[in-house]
């Protein structure tokens, strides 16, 4: 496919720091290659801004290949943009039309405060993970190799699928309630399905859910938006599994 160049209008959320009030700013960007990724397009915008001696737009990114979960962005009203099962770094400019206006906003959630421009503080996820997302391992010199424990294929697969969550926060961003249940559901499920995770199963789900509530995330009402916007295709089944684990732990 031949490379095409398009001209686009950008409406970008600009906010000096956590305390300032932000607003949408409009930029015109010409000669954007349809082969470039969305983040490369933002790099191009920043070069233009630096040349104009303006403050570049701050946005999160790291691996740029869909595995780290650093990139974010609410693009044209959807987390990680219009395509499904991809992160923003995997979104290509060929998805957009010449002359199109593209809205770019940060994740919006009480638990994800904006640090600057499009960068939000997702450390709430870290604290949820720290509250219970771990397993005990014998380190006294006779550690058992994990592969020595047989696990049935079905559970291993479901656990692996849950472990695919990269902690990007698109689920929270797209949920009308700002709920983190898909993320927490994936983290709880990943361990709950494996024998190694059984030891802390009871305390884990209670602690992680408590931390989730303390961070100010909303409550799940099963709209299903998260599952559709999740770049890793994490299933709602994980939320149901967490609900089961939670009920089980609450009554025992």
């Amino acid at each position: 496919m031949a490379t095409k160049y398009i001209n686009i209008n950008l409406k970008v959320w600009r906010q000096k720091d956590a305390k300032s009030k932000g607003q949408m700013e409009t930029y015109k960007l010409n000669q954007v290659s349809t082969d470039s990724s969305f983040l490369e397009m933002l790099d191009q915008l920043n070069e233009q801004l630096i040349n104009e001696r303006k403050e570049p737009v701050a946005f999160d990114h790291d691996c740029r290949e869909g595995i780290c979960g650093m990139c974010s962005l609410y693009i044209n009203g959807r987390a990680h943009g219009p395509d499904t099962l991809i992160t923003t770094c995997q979104l290509h400019m060929r998805t957009f039309k010449d002359g199109e206006t593209i809205y770019i906003e940060p994740w919006r959630s009480k638990a994800f405060p904006v640090i600057k421009d499009l960068v939000v503080d997702r450390s709430a996820f870290d604290r949820i993970q720290q509250a219970g997302g771990f397993v005990s391992v014998n380190t006294s010199g006779n550690t058992i190799d994990a592969n020595a424990t047989p696990i049935n294929k079905h559970d291993a697969d479901r656990s692996f699928e849950a472990a695919a969550c990269i902690g990007c926060g698109a689920c929270v961003a797209s949920c009308k309630n700002g709920s983190a249940m898909l993320f927490v559901g994936a983290k709880v499920s990943q361990y709950a399905l494996l024998p190694q995770g059984k030891i802390e199963a009871h305390d884990r789900v209670l602690a992680m859910v408590r931390q989730m509530d303390e961070e100010g995330f909303g409550n799940c009402t099963n709209t299903g938006a998260c599952e559709i916007e999740c770049p890793k295709g994490i299933s709602l089944e994980n939320i149901a599994r967490m609900n089961r684990e939670y009920l089980k732990a609450s009554f025992s």
Partner: peptide, 18 residues
């Protein structure tokens, strides 16, 4: 749940996912 998102989106395409 309303309180969990104090600042809303300028453009939100909710019908795409729910």
């Amino acid at each position: 749940n309303v309180k969990a998102r104090p600042v809303g989106y300028v453009k939100n395409n909710a019908s795409a996912n729910s």
